[in-house]
Amino acid sequence: MNGANNQISGVSLVVRGLHKSFGGQKVLNGIDLDVRPGEIFVIMGPSGSGKSVLLKHLIGLEEPDAGEILINGESISTPEIAAKYRMALVFQSGALLNSLTVGENVGLYLTEHRLKTPAEIEKIVAEKLDDVGLKDAVNKMPSELSGGMKKRVAIARALVIEPQMILYDEPTSELDPLSSVVIGNEILELKRRIHVTSLVVSHDRDLAFGVADRIAVIADGKILTVGTPDAVKNFPDPRVHDFLHADFARPK
C-alpha cells in the first residue's frame, strides 16, 4: 500500500473506547488515542497502568472487551485487514528465539513465510543487523548477547518485516544510560529514514522527552493527557505532574 519504491511510510492509528478486564480487574478503562503517520508517540505511565496490555491489543495478541482499533481508518478486528498492514512489536525482553542464532532470528519472518531465497535472506539479515550496528553478531546465540544487544537484534528482526508501525515495549528498561541512548537514537533514525510510525511504551522519562513528538500519560487504564513533551510536562493534573517530576528527597 504506502510502501511504494521500498520507501516505508508510517500508518495512522486510532483507538476508540478500548476496554479490557482480566478476571474482573479493569486494566484498560476506555482508552482513546490518535497517532499520526510517521510520528514517535510515547505512552508513559507507572508500572501496572495498562501500557503493555494496550500494546498487545494493537498487535493482535489480545482481544478487547469493547472498543475498536483503526489503522489508516480501517478496523483491524478482522484478520484480513490486520494482515494488510505490517506491524512489528519489539518486546521488552527482546523475545528472541533462544534456540536460533541471531541471524536466524532476524531472518525468521522471511524464512518461515518463504518470501526470499536463502541467499537473499542472508543479505537482508546482514543489512538489518548492520543498521543496528551488530553485523558481527550474526552467528552468535542470543544467550551470548547483552540486554541492549538483544533489544537491537529485536529491532533488526522487526525491520525485516518492513513495518509501517513499530511498537516498542519498554525499550530501555534494564539498560545502562549509554545503551538507552543508542536505542533512542535508533528510534529517531528509523523515523527519519523510513518514516515509520513508532509507538513507544515506557516509563523512562529521559527516553520519552528525548525522542517523542507527542506523549500520552496513562494511569489506571485511562489516558490522562496527550500533547507535546512541553505541554505534557506542564500539565496541571497532580498524577501527571508527580509521575513526570518525581525526585529523590536529597537536600539541595
Binding site: L61, M87, A95, L96, L97, N98, L108, Y109, E112, H113
Partner: peptide
Amino acid sequence: VYQEIDALRTMNI
C-alpha cells in the same frame, strides 16, 4: 513464558 511464542505470533508464524 519468555514471550517467544508471542513473538512468533506477531510475525504471523
